[in-house]
Amino acid sequence: MQENTHTMNITVNGVNYEKEVPVRKLLSDFLREDLGLTGTHVGCEHGVCGACTLFVNGEAIRSCLMFAIQADGADVTTIEGLERNGELHPMQESFSECHGLQCGFCTPGMMMAAIDFLKHNPNPTEQEVKEGMSGNICRCTGYKGIVDSVLKAAPLISKLETKSKVF
């Protein structure tokens, strides 16, 4: 049984790759194994935990629910792509300052979801953050630090010049 592969072209964090990929390979596995981008974590592989969340063409989606070859031609941003020119994204700074992480396993997906959430709601209330972030499970923080981080990042992100915004 020969593994069935397709050739694909994908841009990840600004770098273009042409790769031959098994058809059945999940996007999350492809990024981790074929591109060595292990910042994207896998917590459930059935769409519930949110750990694998990353941006495909500007939308934060579950990379465990997408086959890599479906991202042929896509522009992908993973956690490794948040830092631009040596400058951390305000979400990264806020997570550290507000103790938004403990073990850090949910953190990459959590930050991606948070950045995406703020795109739709740049100035949220605490309750809105709690509801808007409910697609990502964290088992360590009790969510308090996460909610604080998102609230703290919101005005900082609004202030960012458009060109330095990730999306």
């Binding site: 910042g39 951390l88 990264q92 992480l101 953190t107």
Partner: peptide, 9 residues
């Protein structure tokens, strides 16, 4: 945090 927020855990 330094590595974890960068996905470098």
């Amino acid at each position: 945090d330094k590595r974890l927020i960068r996905g470098k855990g």
